[in-house]
Write a protein that binds this DNA or RNA. Structure first.
Length: 901
RNA sequence: GCAGGGGUCGCCCAGUGGUCAACGGCGCUGGCCUUAGGAGCCAGUCCCUUAGUGGGUUCGUGGGUUCGAAUCCCACCCCCUGCACCA
């Protein structure tokens, strides 16, 4: 006989519309997972967040809630365009990956040169994969972030942000390629290096009608400047920028010109500057311009300020010139390390010495950590604070400028030119730095349920750390920025409140995009004004039914950006009662212990995995085998094991026909107790996302227990067990659960509520069974050690008082009180009890109450036949007092003495 | 550098004051099953001891708190992640 296939179960879900959620009388739960970005097919790694979300959705249905779990596609930004472009260029590596790993025919892949075609193709792929995986999604609500209706919604979002004063315009430095005339990310560079931008300070030293701009990482050392350094071999230029003349090295300015636009007035060799004087911006003292070989024309500004008191390079260079007497090093920072000593100790002879690097590090580390300023207006301030303060003060007074450099330079683009920093004007920002906004967000985070809870700290940190975030880009898919239509809204900014859109996305298409103006959404989401018509009103009602969002799910990589923005934006736009309630974060999926990557070729496509192991096995493998935040490791052998166990459970109705009406045995009571107790505990585990625990207890352990049960029982009665068990695990294994229910009941699990029967939980029964298991093991041990098989086993049940006494010890841990109780008891037992107490003293804290003697006895008698069969022995169960064998005295309630003869 | 997380029995990984010599998986050893292999099942896997319920030494290193610590505190060493305008 064939099992009910996944396909049939899926067809049932489809036709019964069980996942299409509509407002009702029932209590609602609204759940979303971060929507996928369809620029390539999905692999098992993608399955984790969605499976976890689905488990939660299905769990909530199982406890009678009306659950909405929708899905859409995020297509905003440049990666899709970049992918289409790579295809258009005929990127062989890419086409090979598509063909060999994902099985996409080359011809098909090659045709995806239009971003929209690409999106449609991959989103269809992904949707199919999600359906195969058994995700209980309401697909009627699907949308793409380039849909005109969605665009209108995002425009409205930005109108609201602007209204609240959170949208700002300003300048912003970005990595830039002159040759490509575009911003540069890691994927545009040779070797995929991420160009890092770093701010340095350019300090202005008066020089005739111009300023020599010295670049420094340590503006606080301005007070110790004795001279300037240049490289006499280099060319220098005088540039007019915003009405002032600046001097840089020529090579440096070539790079800086993209952030400091100006007109080159003249050009001259370094020797022109040599030995002339410049004015210190603070003291106005004249300081000489001297040559140093360590000054590189292409770095910084090509001009360096000399602080011999705190910089080994400067000290040694001055010494080389014999000018240490004339230009005495100034001590402006207190520190236990002095430059002289370090240079001396390392034996540095001249400015070309490679050891200078080390010396600089030593000095810098010491001063940055422990150093304090000695200079009047900053006296006593820690260096790391003074650094910022001095910089800001200098800039404010017009004595310095901000300069950005590529910190890990040189970085080269794929086109071959060096990445420079460009200052983008007209850059728009969302100002997450706004203090009152932050305060409200902080407050809400404190109240929100964050799972796992340990992440709350990280969220709060992120809130503190966020400043303004650039929200527009010059190109990409998505929504045009309403206040400057030449720009596109960037991808992390248009995905912050889209969950609200799901609540009405299936109905809003009835309106034309033109109708979706500010007033439309103001009414829909904020209840302002009046509805346009009945449909409009019903949208509002549906929105209010589902909102607020009850649970937001995503991978751990989105904590510091998306998830935090998501909360920020909700707080900015919606009233308090509609703010999100819970965030659930999960780790990634590794493949056989390694990160999945194209270069390793260890990517397992989702569809292939499902085909091979079945959806339920994949669901357990990605969601139930590791802790939530931990990266879960996908092992084929584990998936294989899960698959086999699942089919064992699934086949039980056939291998052990329904004999539920035959008389109950003691072991049946044991199984009932186990099952009901586990189900009782599972609710909390679902709520807290202790998914690994659930799988451990209800899947792996249950499997062992059923195996044991089948050994123990005479006629297996599994019908009720299977129904309950599959229901409890149905969030993980919906296909198996439905199949079992169809098999047993001729119907699906829809509408069934998970419950347990408290009266069936019987710990005594479970403990008694543990004794049986222990006896088997002990006999085996004894046989091994004694090296004899034996013919007869005598199990001797402990004396009554021992049961009572252990029961007392399980409750009373105070020695004095125990002793008192002993003395109050029967006189002739005092000695024995004290003896036993001293023996058990060490493990007193872990003594549990024993099962009742009646149940234990009954259970042992019941298992006698089983024991005899298993051990091939004659078994006798007797009371301790009937024996004279010395071993008999050792009997304890849960450890009956065993005598093997 | 700043921030967050982490170092556990060959490996991966649970465990936040006593039920911990420490879950689970992998690996390894022995047994069952099988024509055989694989899979599956059972048992073992820190050391010593013992016809089973006994003892010793462990949880990055070194100190401390406690009747009691993998778990709390202090110091140190090492590792991972993020530092944005990118999805």
């Amino acid at each position: 006989m064939e099992n009910i296939s996944e396909e049939k179960v899926r067809a049932y879900w489809e036709s019964s519309k069980v996942f299409q959620a509509n407002p009702s009388e029932k209590e609602k739960v609204f759940i979303t997972a971060a929507f996928p970005y369809p620029n390539s097919p999905q692999h098992i790694g993608h399955a984790r967040t969605y499976t976890i979300t689905d488990i939660y959705a299905r769990y909530n249905r199982l406890i009678g809630k009306n659950v909405l779990f929708p899905m859409g596609f995020h297509v905003t930004g440049t990666p899709i365009i970049a992918m289409a472009k790579r295809i258009e260029e005929g990127d062989e590596d890419l086409l090979k990956i598509f063909e060999e790993i994902y099985g996409i025919p080359k011809e098909k892949a090659k045709s995806l040169t239009n971003p929209k075609d690409l999106v449609l193709y991959f989103s269809k792929e992904i949707e199919e994969g999600m359906k195969l995986l058994g995700l209980s999604i309401d697909w009627r609500r699907k949308f793409y972030t380039f849909d005109p209706h969605f665009n209108k919604f995002i425009e409205w979002q930005f109108l609201k942000l602007k209204e609240a004063g959170f949208i700002e315009k300003g300048e912003h430095p970005i990595p830039w390629s002159v040759k490509l005339n575009s911003p540069i990310g890691a994927h545009d560079t040779k070797g995929d290096v991420d160009p890092e931008i770093e701010e340095i300070t350019g300090i202005k030293f008066e020089f005739g009608d111009s300023y020599l701009v010295a670049a420094t990482y340590r503006p606080e050392t301005i007070f110790g400047v004795t001279n300037l350094w240049i490289n006499e071999e280099e060319q220098y230029v005088k540039v007019r920028i915003k009405g002032e003349n600046y001097i840089f090295s020529k090579k440096a300015y070539e790079k800086l010109s993209h952030q400091l636009e100006g007109e080159i007035l003249e050009s001259f060799g370094g020797s022109y500057l040599l030995n002339k004087k410049a004015k210190h911006p603070l003291s106005k003292k004249e300081i000489p311009i001297l040559p140093a070989s360590f000054v590189k024309g292409g770095e910084g500004t090509g001009i360096v300020m000399s602080v011999p008191g705190h910089a080994p390079y400067d000290y040694v260079a001055l010494r080389d010139l014999g000018k240490l007497e004339e230009l005495k090093p100034l001590k402006i920072i207190s520190s236990s390390l002095s430059v002289e000593e370090v240079v001396e100790k390392l034996g540095i002879k001249e400015q070309t010495s490679p050891k200078l690097e080390e010396a600089t590090k030593l000095i810098y580390k010491e001063e940055a950590h422990k150093g304090k300023m000695l200079i009047e207006s900053y006296k006593g301030m820690l260096v790391k604070e003074a650094k910022e303060k001095v910089k800001e003060d200098l800039i404010k007074e017009g004595k310095a400028i901000r300069i950005w450099v590529i910190a890990n330079s040189p970085v080269y683009t794929r086109a071959g030119d060096e990445v420079v920093v460009k200052l983008v004007k007209d850059q728009w920002f969302i100002n997450y730095g706004n203090p009152s906004w932050k305060a409200r967000v902080r407050e809400h985070f404190e109240k929100m349920k964050i799972i796992p809870p340990s992440l709350k700290k990280q969220f709060l940190e992120t809130v503190e750390w966020l400043e303004r975030k650039a929200c527009t880009r010059s190109s990409g898919l998505g929504t045009r920025f309403p206040f400057d239509k030449s720009k596109m809204i960037e991808a992390l900014s248009d995905s912050t409140i889209y969950m609200a859109f799901y609540t009405i996305s299936h109905k809003i298409k009835e309106f034309s995009p033109k109708e979706l103006d500010e007033a439309f959404f103001d009414y829909l989401f904020l209840g302002k004004g009046t509805p346009k018509n009945a449909l409009h009103k019903s949208l509002r009602e549906e929105f209010l039914y589902w909102y607020p969002l009850d649970s937001r799910h995503s991978g751990a990589d989105l904590v510091r950006n998306h998830l935090t923005f998501f909360v920020f934006n909700h707080i900015a736009i919606f009233p308090k009662e509609l703010w999100p309630k819970q965030i659930v974060v999960n780790g990634f999926v590794l493949m056989e212990g390694k990160k999945m990557s194209k270069s390793l070729g260890n990517i397992l496509p989702l569809k292939e995995a499902i085909k091979k192991y079945g959806a339920d096995a994949i669901r357990i493998s990605v969601a139930g085998t590791s802790d939530l935040l931990q990266d879960s490791d996908f092992y084929r052998s584990v998936a294989e094991g899960v698959k086999q166990r699942l089919s064992f459970f699934k086949n039980l109705p056939k291998s052990h026909p329904k004999l539920e009406n035959s008389e109950k045995e003691k072991i049946d009571l044991w199984l009932e107790s186990k099952l009901n107790r586990k189900i009782k505990g599972v609710f909390k585990k679902y709520e807290e996302f202790q998914l690994r625990e659930i799988i451990l207890e209800l899947f792996y352990e249950m499997y062992e227990e059923i195996k044991w049960y089948l050994q123990r029982v005479k006629t297996p009665k599994l019908r009720e067990f299977l129904k309950k068990w599959s229901l409890a695990l149905s969030p993980f294994i919906p296909y198996t659960a439905e199949a079992i229910w169809f098999e047993l009941e001729g119907k699906g699990i829809e509408g069934e509520k998970l419950s347990w029967e408290e009266e069936k939980i019987n710990l005594d029964r479970e403990k008694a069974e543990e004794v049986i298991k222990a006896i088997l093991l002990d006999v085996e041990n004894i046989r091994k050690l004694a090296n004899k098989k034996g013919e007869k086993l005598t199990i001797c049940l402990a004396l009554d008082w021992k049961f009572d006494f252990l029961s007392l010890l399980s409750k009373e841990k105070n020695m004095e009180k125990i002793q008192q109780k002993i003395k109050e008891g029967e006189k002739h037992l005092i000695g024995e009890k004290l003896k036993l107490l001293s023996k058990l003293r060490k493990e007193l804290h872990k003594i549990e109450s024993p099962p009742s003697k009646e149940i234990l006895k009954e259970h042992l008698e019941d298992a006698k036949e089983f024991l005899e069969k298993q051990l091939q022995l004659k078994v006798e169960i007797v009371e301790e007092e009937t024996l004279t064998h010395p071993k008999a005295k050792q009997s304890l309630p849960t450890k009956p003495a065993l005598i093997l003869e």
